[in-house]
């Protein structure tokens, strides 16, 4: 049951905060093959890799509405409150957010970055 319209990858989404990468197949607010759901932000979307259904999508991330950085939807990197905000920006403007969000953030530690490092090749 391979779908005829194999989801063509448009490129690789890379979170500018945590470095998560995944191929995306759509950017926008109306994911393909779906009529009943709209997204409330310009999102990077891939077909849900964990579902066999063609119309299942997965939102990978979007741009922070303050700094414009590409951030994944992971709770360590960004949050959505009527718009997408990356956590560094939220922290910077913490007072602008309702107390519920502030409380939420307090529970989290600052994200620790772990950049991948390569190993040396064999001499050849």
């Amino acid at each position: 049951m391979a779908s005829e319209t194999e989801h063509r990858s448009l490129g690789v989404f890379e979170c500018q905060l945590c470095g998560l990468t995944a191929p995306y197949s759509y950017v926008g607010q109306k994911p393909p093959n779906t009529q009943s759901v709209v997204l409330l932000e310009e999102s990077y979307v891939m077909k849900d890799p964990f579902s066999p259904d063609r119309d299942r999508f997965l939102v990978l991330g979007a741009r922070c509405s303050i700094c414009g950085k590409l951030a994944c939807v992971g709770p360590e990197c960004s949050l959505f409150y009527s718009k997408r905000f990356c956590l560094p920006c939220v922290r910077e403007h913490l007072s602008a957010f309702p107390p519920e969000i502030r409380q939420d953030l307090e529970k989290k530690k600052a994200p620790s970055s772990s950049g991948p490092s390569g190993r040396a090749c064999p001499r050849s």
């Binding site: 009529q35 009943s36 759901v37 709209v38 979007a62 949050l79 959505f80 409150y81 602008a96 309702p98």
Partner: peptide
């Protein structure tokens, strides 16, 4: 223009038609 008061619904980035 962040919505006030807080509602958990505003944290959801999609909507159902």
């Amino acid at each position: 223009d962040l919505p006030r008061p807080y509602d958990s619904r505003y944290r959801i980035n999609l909507s159902v038609l």
